[in-house]
């Protein structure tokens, strides 16, 4: 299995590549979106802005949604999670809509949320194997997902709202935090994702 990292043409892709490779996964960064058609594991990284990313993905929206529905393992991080939903207050561009729901701007004293926040989850979740609930992960986001289907795997709190910090629908995972920047805890979660992906 090779994790195909989608390059929207902007930002740092080293971190996620390095994180996945640390777990023993093979990776490829692709900027030719047509290559996603044959990918057997897709990673949408958490860099850039919603509109920019969707403009790049729009021409192959149907192909991507076909891949997401086909049961292949997919990981969306931060912005990469947000584009899985239908739309976002950040942009007029529509999201992929694989997960029903909207992305909204945080209402809080300080936006972006910048730093290490707790994720609360059920310790039986395979994706969090080896990580205690309440562990901090690194977040850097102004917008947050309100999914209406799929399963919420972990919750976090910021600015007096509880929000979905990790979700799963079929074999598509979304993390609002950056596992590749979350030290030991994040690497464990990435390793768990790769193991789940290999077992599918």
């Amino acid at each position: 299995m090779k994790a195909v990292i989608v390059d929207y043409g902007i930002g740092n892709l080293h971190s996620i590549r390095k994180g996945l490779e640390k777990t023993g996964a093979k990776t490829e960064i692709v900027s030719d979106m047509n290559k996603l058609e044959s990918a057997d594991c897709i990673v949408f990284p958490g860099v850039g802005a919603f509109g920019e990313a969707m403009r790049k993905l729009e021409p192959i929206r149907e192909i991507i949604n076909g891949r997401l529905s086909s049961g292949i393992p997919v990981l969306g991080i931060c912005l990469g999670m947000q584009i899985l939903l239908e739309d976002s207050e950040e942009s007029r561009e529509k999201g992929l809509g694989f997960v029903k729901g909207r992305v909204k701007k945080f209402v809080a004293d300080r936006v972006p949320q910048m730093g290490w926040n707790d994720a609360i989850f059920d310790s039986d979740e395979e994706i969090f194997k080896g990580v205690p609930s309440g562990t901090q992960f690194y977040f850097a986001n102004s917008y947050v997902c309100f999914p209406e289907d799929g399963k919420v795997l972990s919750k976090s709190r910021y600015g007096e709202i509880d929000y979905a910090s990790a979700i799963r629908k079929e074999n598509v995972f979304g993390f609002q935090f950056h596992p590749e920047k979350s030290s030991i805890a994040g690497l464990k979660v990435l390793k768990n994702f790769v193991e789940i992906a290999r077992g599918l």
């Binding site: 809080a108 004293d109 300080r110 910048m114 730093g115 290490w116 926040n117 976090s156 709190r157 600015g159």
Partner: peptide, 9 residues
Amino acid sequence: ERIEMLTKR
């Protein structure tokens, strides 16, 4: 108090 869930860096 309002942002207590986010740790200080």
